[in-house]
Amino acid sequence: MSAREIRNLILSAMAFGVVALLPFYDTGYILSIATTMAMFTVLATSWALFSGPTHYISLATAAFFGLGTFVTGYGFQTMPYWSLPLIAGVLGAGLAGLVGMVTLRLSGVYFVIFTLGLAELVRQLVTWVQNRTGQRGMYVLTSITERDIYWQLLGMAALVFLVGWLIGRSRLGFALRIIGNDETVAKHSGINTALAKVLLFMVSGAAAAIVGAMLAPRYIYIEPSTAFAPILSFQVVIMALLGGTGRLWGPVAGVIPFTLLWEFISRHAPNQTLLLLGLAFLLIVYVLPGGVVGLQARLKHRFGQGGH
C-alpha cells in the first residue's frame, strides 16, 4: 500500500465519520434528504462497480431493491432484524448470479432490455405467489427510525467503497477493465470473461437487495407496484452517469447534486417537476458528457498544459 493510498483511506474514513454525525445536528428535513442521498450513493456506486468497467448498462436495480424490501416484509416479524439485510444480500447475489449466467453472454442493447424486463418479471412472480397464497399488502410496522436507517446505509456505503477499492486492486478488477476495453482480446488472453462479469454483477445485485431490505421500514407499506417501480433503475443510472463511472467516487459526485436539484425543483416548481428534471438531464448530458469525473480530468488536462 502506497503512502498516497493510506492517506486516501484515512481521509475517506474521516469523511464518513463526519457524515455519520449528521443525525446529532438535525433529525428532520436535512436527515431525510441525507437518507435519500445515502441510499442512492450505495445504489449508484455498486451499480458502477459492475457497469463502469464492463460498460454493460444494467436496469435491474429495481428488481434487486424490490426483492430486498420483500425479504424484510416477510421476515421482520419472525426473524431477528439484523439477519434480514444478510438474507436479502444472499438472495440478491443468487438472483444476480442466476440471471448473470443466462444473460451476460448477451451484449449491448440486448442486455439492457433484459435487465429492464427483470424487475417486471420478479414483480409478476411475487404477485403470482401472493395471488396463490392469498397474501396481501404487507405492513412493516417497526420502531426503526430514519436515523437508524441512515446509519445502516452509511455503513453499507463504506462497505461498498471498501469492496470497490479492493476489487480495483485485484486481478478481477484488472480483468474487468480489459473486458470493458475489448472483450475479444480479454478472452484470447485467457480471462474467464463470463465468470468475471457474473461475479461483479452479483456484488452489485447483493448491494441493491440489502438497500431494499434496509429501506422497507421507511416505506411501511410494501406492495409490488411501488417496491419494483422501474423509475428507481433509471434514477440510479442517471446519477451514476452524471458523476462519472471512471472513478470509485464518481457516482457520489452525481448523487449529491442530483438529489439537491431534484429537491429544489420539487419545492419550487411542484407542477412541472418531471419536465424540468428532463430538461436538466438533457443539459447535463450535453455540457458534461463524461460526468463530473470527466470534467475533473478535462480541467486537469487544460491547466496541466497551461503550466508549460
Binding site: Y29, R218, Y221, E263, R267
Partner: peptide, 22 residues
Amino acid sequence: IEYDDQTNPQQAIQAAQRLATQ
C-alpha cells in the same frame, strides 16, 4: 401549499418533511 409526491413513497416522505420543517 401544494407539492407533487410523484406517486412515489420516497418523495411522499420528503414532501411531508419539507412541508413540516421548511
